[in-house]
């Protein structure tokens, strides 16, 4: 993992054309895009790791970092789940099936699969933070034998904003994954599970901190609370991993935008172990 040295001699800023195979509306302003590489090569050669991201490029609208949502175990398409928020993402939503745009990557250091293997996995996701965690989740489910228990905690602000709804529902039929879903508010009273912030889910289940690795991704406010909770439950600091978001321009450690102390979120992260960033005040 880490930086892909192969790219060293090439122009790291040159994007590669992909086309949209399917464009699946998720919730309001969120879509899942399934992509294929235009020049006929496969995603195998792209060789991404769960937790890595790409730079999406639409000429005239700029570039934006977007997590890869699909696992390297499912390579027929590459999936990204995008929220429409600004210039580039609006332009992306204008594109239909068969349309072309450009990407660069895969970038960054993903989840430490080799460390996680053989252990219990606790995935804590808030909102769109599920996008990068989903690549790890599906990876672990596809290689189910390589992991011990898998627990997913997923919180959204209300029942309308649950991403990957059908996928999450399908876990109801599985015995080999434990899922806990929460919504911050349920004004219509339709939510059958936990109502409250995602940290409340910790009181709903027994965890075994010694052999569990916790990984999390969500909105900025979530990290501190979840980490506090984990530490109070007895999780060792090096059993906690966070995937962080920063404003990024280049994705390859040059433009400086994503710096966090002496680290660059785009190349040293976006996944960090808690000890790596614990002493950096601006990190979380």
């Amino acid at each position: 993992m880490g930086v892909n040295k192969q790219l060293k001699e090439e122009n790291i800023y040159k994007p590669l054309p992909v086309s949209i195979v399917r464009n699946l509306p998720q919730i309001k302003d969120h879509r899942l895009f399934q992509l294929k590489i235009e020049n006929g090569t496969t995603w195998e050669t792209f060789s991404h790791q769960p937790g890595q991201f790409i730079e999406v490029s639409i000429f005239g609208k700029g570039e934006a970092p977007i997590s890869i949502s699909s696992p390297p175990t499912r390579l027929d398409t590459l999936e990204i789940c995008v929220r429409k928020v600004g210039i580039l993402t609006n332009a992306l939503f204008e594109l239909g099936k068969g349309s072309t745009f450009y990407i660069r990557g895969p970038y960054g250091r993903g989840f430490p699969i080799d460390i996680l293997k053989g252990h219990k996995l606790l995935l804590v996701a808030g909102g769109l933070g599920l996008a990068p965690l989903r690549s790890l989740l599906l990876y672990a489910l596809d290689k189910r034998g390589e992991f011990d228990d898998i627990i997913l905690m997923y919180g959204t602000n209300n029942p309308d904003n649950v991403l990957f709804k059908y996928e999450l529902l399908s876990f109801f039929d599985r015995k080999d994954i434990k899922y806990l879903y929460s919504v911050d508010k349920d004004e219509e009273g339709i939510w059958k599970q936990y109502v409250g912030v995602v940290t409340g889910l910790f009181d709903q289940t027994e965890l075994s901190p010694d052999d569990t690795y916790a990984v999390m991704c969500g909105p900025p406010v979530m990290y501190r609370f979840v980490i506090q909770k984990l530490l109070s439950l007895g999780f060792a600091k090096d059993h906690i991993y966070v995937s962080l978001e920063r404003m990024m321009k280049c994705g390859v450690g040059k433009c400086g935008h994503c710096a966090i102390g002496d680290k660059y979120c785009c190349t040293d992260g976006p996944v960090f172990s808690y000890p790596e960033i614990e002493s950096i005040k601006e990190a979380i």
Binding site: Y13, F59, G60, K61, G62, E63, K249, C250, K254, C255, G256, H257
Partner: peptide, 11 residues
């Protein structure tokens, strides 16, 4: 100091 921004000038 080598930080940069990237932008498109397009029509």
């Amino acid at each position: 100091c080598t930080c940069f921004n990237v932008y498109d000038l397009a029509r």
